[in-house]
Each structure stands twice: as structure tokens, then as C-alpha cells.
């Protein structure tokens, strides 16, 4: 008898925690979407009003659009840079450990540090990047003040911060390619480019998909970068979905509406990730 309950005792803290902090919140969040509530006064049942509001909320759709813009720049840039640097690191070189550690440094540092730092680098008059541009004869660019540039600027910064992790993942992937393949290709007289396109790329396809999924989920969580750098501006051009949910919930205390946005956005993320996973399975 004692033997039988031991496993349940061991998993019970997890089950209790799951019920309180996952299962209940998910259920409660669905219930909240049908109500208006500012936490203090009593809840007010409003039916589907929150959903109607969501579909007409231009700022929310803007925030989704911004997130997609972010992903459209961030993911390809990340894969190209990571693959390129991983390929370099995979050659016979000295100081590999140093280079790898250097590329990885931004990954471990808090996003707050990176954001404060890049805010200065992107500064209009005194920012390092604009000063360099002026020096080589270009015009200054309003990296964070021009609505067309602000989101791409954040995407480039996010790539700088995360790419080290993907370099390491690609490096692991590259090392699984059997060297005989390259040797055989060399005997046939294949060029560098041919070897890369015909052998490397197909072999590390699973890693590429993993990177796509990881950075998609990461991109959908975008919050601290626009919060610190731009506050979502200029003209809402950098407001991200999480930042908008945060504002609705913790600035205006629209708990019901914020929960509706959260639920809808979570479903969107799950759908996108599921579609991506389908692609991976089909590929296999």
C-alpha cells in the first residue's frame, strides 16, 4: 500500500502547482473574456462585447502587424548571420573558444541592458551609429524616431542579442554532417558554394526549423525592447502584442479585455507554431 502512494506523493507538488497556476488561470481567463472587470468593483457580464471590441481595435491589429514585421526581418536575418558565423567557426581555426564566447555574450545579458545600450547607439544626434554614418558621408537616420525605421531597428538589435545561441545550435548541427560527404564532393570537384547548398543545407534542415520555431515564439513575446526604447511609438509603430496586453491590463485595469487579447493572441501563436511543426513533419 505504502509503495503505491509514493509516486503520487512525489508528483503531488507539481499537480497542485499545475492546478493553481496553470489549469485554473486558463479556465478563469476564458471566463474573464465575457466580463468587464477592474479588479476592485464587481465583475460585470458583457457577453461577447470584448470579442467585438477586439475585432474593431485598430491598435491591437497594428500590434499584431508590428510583431509580424518584426518576425519577417528577425528570422531570416538571424538564420543567415547565425549560419554564416557557425560555418566560419566550424573551420579549422585557432581561438574558436574565444570567438564562440564573444558571439554568445549578448545572449546571457539581460534584455534590459541590451535595450538601454542600443537606445544610446541608435540615438539621433549623439548615437554612435549616426556619428559613424555622418563620418562616412551619409545622412543621419531616425532609427527609433522614424516610424518606418523603428521596428526594423528593434529587430536588428534583437538579432544581435539572440544570434549567439543560434550560432551554437547550428554549430552542433554542422558537426553532425559526416565529413565523408564533403570529401566525396571534393573528389567530384564541387565548389564551396555547391557543397554548402547540396550537402550542408539539407543536412541541417532540422536545425533551421528548430531555429525558426524558437525565434517565432521568442518574437511573439517581444515586450521589454519596445517598452524601454520607444514605449510603443512613434505612432504605435513598435507597439507589440504583449506590450499592448500589458497596457490594457496594468495601465487601464481592463482585466476582461486584456484577458481576451491574451487568449486570442495565445491561440494565434499556437496556430502559427502548429503550422510550422506540420511543415517540419512533412519535410521529414
Amino acid at each position: 500500500m505504502r509503495k503505491k502512494i509514493i509516486p503520487y506523493l512525489l508528483v503531488s507538488p507539481y499537480i497542485v502547482h499545475f492546478i493553481i497556476f496553470v489549469a485554473f488561470p486558463v479556465g478563469f481567463s476564458i471566463y474573464l473574456t465575457f466580463n468587464n472587470w477592474n479588479i476592485i468593483s464587481p465583475m460585470e457580464f458583457t457577453g461577447l462585447n470584448n470579442y467585438k471590441r477586439l475585432f474593431q481595435d485598430a491598435v491591437f491589429w497594428k500590434s499584431i502587424f508590428n510583431t509580424l514585421i518584426f518576425l519577417a526581418i528577425h528570422i531570416p536575418l538571424q538564420i543567415i548571420v547565425a549560419l554564416f558565423l557557425a560555418e566560419l567557426l566550424n573551420q579549422k581555426i585557432n581561438f574558436r573558444g574565444f570567438f564562440r564566447a564573444a558571439f554568445f555574450l549578448p545572449v546571457i545579458v539581460s534584455g534590459v541592458v541590451v535595450t538601454i545600450l542600443w537606445q544610446q547607439l541608435y540615438g539621433f544626434d549623439t548615437g554612435l551609429i549616426n556619428r559613424l554614418l555622418v563620418k562616412i558621408g551619409f545622412e543621419k537616420i531616425g532609427w527609433l524616431t522614424n516610424p518606418n525605421w523603428a521596428m526594423p531597428s528593434i529587430a536588428v538589435m534583437a538579432t544581435w542579442k539572440n544570434v549567439g545561441l543560434y550560432i551554437v545550435l547550428f554549430l552542433v548541427g554542422l558537426q553532425t554532417v559526416p565529413p565523408q560527404y564533403y570529401e566525396a564532393a571534393e573528389l567530384e570537384g564541387a565548389t564551396h558554394m555547391q557543397k554548402f547548398l547540396k550537402i550542408t543545407l539539407p543536412m541541417i534542415n532540422p536545425t533551421i526549423f528548430m531555429v525558426v520555431v524558437l525565434s517565432t515564439v521568442g518574437g511573439f513575446s517581444l515586450f521589454i525592447e519596445p517598452y524601454v526604447m520607444t514605449g510603443g511609438g512613434p505612432l504605435n509603430s513598435t507597439i507589440s502584442a504583449v506590450l499592448y496586453i500589458y497596457k490594457q491590463g496594468f495601465f487601464y485595469y481592463h482585466m476582461g479585455y486584456a484577458a481576451t487579447l491574451g487568449l486570442f493572441f495565445a491561440m494565434l501563436i499556437l496556430t502559427v507554431v502548429m503550422i510550422q511543426k506540420k511543415f517540419v513533419e512533412k519535410d521529414k
Binding site: V22, P25, V26, S29, I245, A258, G262, L270
Partner: peptide, 27 residues
């Protein structure tokens, strides 16, 4: 129920945090 618990754990891994953010704060 071992498999069930395992599936629950996998499920929580894929669950986006955006959905639990507001209700967790209320808790």
C-alpha cells in the same frame, strides 16, 4: 496516470504565457 501527467507537462510547455498572465496576476 503517469502518461497523463507526462502529457500535461508537455502541454504546459507549449502553452503561451500570454494566456495565463492576467489570471495569474489576479491570483
Amino acid at each position: 496516470g503517469r502518461d497523463l501527467i507526462f502529457y500535461i507537462i508537455i502541454f504546459t510547455m507549449t502553452l503561451p504565457f500570454q494566456i495565463t498572465l492576467i489570471p495569474q496576476y489576479i491570483l
